[in-house]
Design a protein around this nucleic acid. Sequence first.
DNA 1: TTAACATCTGAACGTATGCTCATATGAGCG
DNA 2: CGCTCATATGAGCATACGTTCAGATGTTAA
Lengths: 128, 128
Amino acid sequence: MSIRSDVKTVIHDDLCEINLVDKRMVKKVIGKLEDDVALLELADLFKAFSDSTRIKILRALSISELCVCDIAAVAGISQSAVSHQLRFLRMSRLVKYRKDGKMVYYSLDDDHVRKLIDQGLEHVKEER
Amino acid sequence: MSIRSDVKTVIHDDLCEINLVDKRMVKKVIGKLEDDVALLELADLFKAFSDSTRIKILRALSISELCVCDIAAVAGISQSAVSHQLRFLRMSRLVKYRKDGKMVYYSLDDDHVRKLIDQGLEHVKEER
DNA sequence: TTAACATCTGAACGTATGCTCATATGAGCG
DNA sequence: CGCTCATATGAGCATACGTTCAGATGTTAA
């Protein structure tokens, strides 16, 4: 019930008071900012790209559709690890798959994925 | 010294032998794939975007330069947490800063960062 | 100099993450 | 049917990560 007077605290709801340097700009930024759910989804999207195994898989699939064991060969990791990561990518809707007998072939679900990887690679390459 | 006969094992160096379904395609993909270091850097780049606090900070900075305490206000988290994440982003060379007295103002280091966020947002918004 | 303030930093702690290992499922084949 | 192969999955474990807390640093102003 009491009003917090802790210096470090900023009450977020109504943008008050304490410790704000440029109140107007803070309001403006909060106004433009996407809602928390969207930003969480955005973070989760990038999370899919943030592991070296997964990015290798995604990059490989951006070159060609591949079956699970060939993905493992390309990425140089165990089939089990690949399978776990593919599940992650499937659930993130970044890859799709088709079954052919006992084989399962994976490919990118969406061209955005390719674009994101390309954009990222561009940045990485510039940093050299 | 002994040659592994474990079925699950694929010797990566010379693309051999066991469990490869489409040997030609595997070779082709490996040929096109960036080297491990580049892919690791790529994963690290995306890692910077993969946390909801960091993406919030980056997105806020893509709207306007802000000082630390205003970032904390916008993101709704403690100044200390912000500071730790800013260090991360600084070391990833995604943000730059200028000092003005005791204040420190952060902004995006590079337009690629903005592009990546925009591209990601586009994907997220389409998924609805 | 002292006080107040903005920011930074290290340690500690709980949680999330990615791997391995063992095993399950499910298709093709003899 | 029973075997093999391709893939999937659950448990367990070690490591990585993000936060908080306490305190350090550095700047401004009285």
